[in-house]
Amino acid sequence: MSDIAIIKIGNKIIVPIQNELNDIIAEKLQASILKTIESVGAKGLIIDVSTLSIIDSFMGRLLVDTAKMAQLMGCETALTGMRKEVVLTLVQLGLIISDINTSLNIEDGIELLDRIIRGRND
């Protein structure tokens, strides 16, 4: 299927989405992310969307859902690197992705997740 890498670093996994995904591949990616969280017991998930040139309602839903699913498995998610055009389009679309952590870049995302994970004391 897709050649998207799922990278494990410490207690977190990082998924840099590199190319435009069609709906079917996007759903498969969601499944493999969740499987990886389960198998490595990840506490944090970073999805980097800095190369995504658009996020439409399907992709938006998929990202929010993935974060919710991960949370049920005790894993916090940060969405990183969303492009400004994408953000402006989402705002105009009325698509408010709330209840999901966002960071400017992967580095900030790792820092943010560390803080949240530490705060949970588990």
């Binding site: 658009i54 439409d56 105009q92």
Partner: peptide
Amino acid sequence: RELMERLGFSLLAQTRIVTAVSELAR
């Protein structure tokens, strides 16, 4: 997106319309 780029649309306009195209095509 390529067509809009050739026609001189801004990156933001491209992103907006391509997002709409994605919704309608789906």
